[in-house]
Design a protein around this nucleic acid. Structure first.
Lengths: 223, 223
DNA sequence: CTTGCCATACAGACCGGTTGGTATGTATAG
DNA sequence: CTATACATACCAACCGGTCTGTATGGCAAG
């Protein structure tokens, strides 16, 4: 109890590290990695260069840590990759899309997806950045692909489609939608795109016998 | 004949400007706008600061000019927006997608779409950048929407869809595909995504009577 | 045709500010 | 006492931008 409790005064290296990561994330999210100023990050975190270079060997390593320890979890949680999904994956994905569309903030419409921002800026410039960012995207893609595959086994997804290809397309469409909406500064465009993507997902269902399947009532059970 | 001919030696302000624009485009494409060094651009263009600041008031204006005079034409030409399309727009779009998929270079897989790069980096930081970039995207989106609308009038596109929403989604999917493929450094992923998008476009056709419409033979005429 | 002029079109030195990074000093916890 | 966890002063490199100097080429005057 004396270990990690009530130690706010004096030394607390973990808290210092966290403050650095959080401040770095915000600054990088706003200006991009290369344009992010260490002095600004330091000021925002309320620490000095000594603290920074005690915890990280250089600016790049701080960036890697932001990807691995902040952005990654942020994204996977926001897109429902963390918790396992059950039931029909098309409906599950559509629900996530609708949820995201409903909970959009002006802030994230303006700044876009932090992981995609880093991917676009740093991929050609830094292999380690690229690997780290792409690893997270891979987790997302694999999760979607696995769900679709399960859907195929359970008969809720057409077997003629390639789950991995669809998954890659879904993720790309989402990120592209965020990116273009950011350029257009239009939450409406983003919502519309997510909606179209949802209707595309509808086409992944197996063709029911002579029934247009335009509307579908999800049973109101929590699963 | 004495005006613009054989004047390669001595003064040629237009040529100087073009060299600056081209060098700036390449440097910005590689490093991003903010990280693009004027000295590098000048070295690549083979001119000096005096020339640069004679033709452009500052770095930002050089960037705007790159968008308007280099990237814009580059993109619109590459995606068939310049020449008007005739006939069924779904098939036309699919052909463009296949053409792009077939002509991908490792260079553009590595660096992505120059316009989208600028959009992602600069949109939140510089209103004029954002407007310029978004204006070009708007031209593209409008062209696609107009084609789809014409398709609706001609009976080759379902009337239940919103052309503008589909157009925005198509452009977003393409840009997202380039972005994610750039992060994954995978031309295969990019091609696969464009292929999936092509199959999505297929679903825009009006439902023919009791015929799965999986395959379709485009008549080999140049249309 | 020639001469002189002057706006144009650069060249290149220079500048203050900011950058990431380092070196050294010091207080704290164990 | 010692390793950890910072704080602070400092640095060379580079940044975008400015300033001054100069050569060119068209044009008007003679």
């Amino acid at each position: 109890m004396t270990k990690t409790m009530v130690k706010r005064r004096g030394r607390d290296p973990d808290a210092t590290r966290d403050k650095l990561l959080k401040a770095a994330f915000e600054e990088i999210y706003r200006r991009g990695f290369q344009a992010a100023s260490l002095d600004t990050i330091l000021a925002k975190a309320g620490v000095t260069k000594g603290a920074l270079y005690h915890h990280f060997p250089d600016k790049a390593s701080l960036g890697y840590a932001v990807v691995d320890e902040v952005v990654k979890g942020f994204l996977l949680e926001r897109w429902g990759v963390s918790e396992p999904s059950t039931g029909d994956p098309v409906t599950a994905l559509q629900r996530i899309l609708r949820g995201r569309a409903a909970s959009l903030t002006p802030h994230e419409v303006e700044l876009g997806c932090p992981l995609n921002n880093l991917a676009q800026e740093m991929s050609p410039l830094d292999q380690r950045f690229r690997r780290g960012v792409n690893a997270t995207f891979d987790i997302w893609r694999n999760a979607v692909a696995r769900d679709l595959q399960r859907g195929q086994a359970e008969g809720t997804v057409r077997k003629s489609v390639d789950p991995r290809k669809i998954a890659a397309f879904v993720v790309a469409s989402i990120e592209g939608s965020f990116g273009l909406a950011k350029g257009a500064q239009s939450a409406a465009m983003l919502r519309s795109n997510l909606e179209v993507l949802g209707s595309f997902l509808e086409s992944l269902r197996p063709a029911s016998k002579a029934l247009p399947a335009r509307e579908r009532k999800p049973s109101r059970r929590k699963q």
